[in-house]
Amino acid sequence: MPELIAPTIRLHSAWLEARAEWGPGLHEDGFGLGPSDEVDSPDGFAAWVALRADESGLKAVESGRGCTYRWIVEGDRVHGGIALRHGFNDYVLQFGHIGYGIRPSSRRRGLATWALGQMLDEARVLGLEKVLIVCEADNVASTKTIELNGGMLEGIRDTDSGAVRRYWIKI
């Protein structure tokens, strides 16, 4: 059975394995990986995990600017990550409240649909009435995932990085 867990240093090697499967880049949405994050060494990874925990902490939640990060795992295998961004700021309006990514070998199992449903429950606990989710316009898998969780298409917009679909889900 899959579960959502907070990022942990215990799964460093499993997380690196998942990241390696994606290949180079920052496209593993849901992990909160930034261009300057050093995650290969144990110390760098521990510092990065601590920052993700700080963003999920009470102060961040109360400010409405935090982000809840969860990893999608089964046993010691990291299948992907999902992030719930709190509040309404420019970043959320551009990229959405929720971002997720599933490693290629774990796709087509319903993990993203399941994880999104779980994060909608967390959004409810935070008091959000609706969430925005954005995906690339040609990402059929994400489109299905969002729609299966009640996403209503606002429209398709052109951005600097290509066309995106914008969905709203009422909580």
Rank of each mutant, 00 (worst) to 15 (best):
G162P: 11
N139K: 03
A112W: 05
P2R: 03
P42V: 02
V134A: 14
G44R: 02
M119P: 01
A115H: 13
R77G: 14
H86Q: 12
S63M: 05
A83N: 13
T68S: 10
S161P: 00
F88C: 14
N89Y: 04
A20D: 12
D121G: 14
L84E: 02
C67A: 12
L120W: 07
I156Q: 04
Y100G: 03
E147A: 06
A53T: 10
V164H: 14
G162Q: 13
W71Y: 11
W15T: 12
I171P: 01
M152W: 00
A18D: 01
N89K: 05
Y100A: 07
I102T: 04
P2F: 05
L4I: 07
M1S: 14
G57F: 08
K170N: 09
I171V: 08
I72S: 08
I82S: 07
R103N: 03
V92D: 11
G101Q: 04
T145L: 03
G23M: 08
D43A: 15
H79K: 00
S106T: 05
R70E: 05
K170G: 11
H27I: 07
E122M: 12
G117H: 04
D40N: 09
K130C: 02
S56Q: 05
P42K: 02
K144A: 15
W71I: 06
G81V: 07
R65N: 15
A6D: 07
R65C: 13
A20K: 13
E55A: 11
L153E: 00
V164S: 13
V134F: 13
G110S: 05
E74W: 01
T159P: 13
L148H: 13
C135K: 13
S56I: 02
G34V: 00
E62T: 15
A6T: 07
G110Y: 01
I156D: 00
R65D: 14
V39N: 09
R77M: 15
V134Y: 12
R77T: 15
H86P: 03
E28W: 04
L51P: 01
L58Q: 05
A14L: 11
W71N: 06
V78K: 03
A141K: 10
E62W: 14
P2M: 08
S36M: 05
V61K: 09
F88K: 12
L148T: 08
P42S: 02
Y167G: 08
G44M: 04
V49H: 06
L26W: 08
T68A: 10
L132A: 09
G81A: 12
I156G: 03
R108K: 02
D76A: 15
L126D: 08
A46Y: 04
H97G: 09
E28Q: 11
R165E: 10
R157F: 11
D37V: 07
G162C: 14
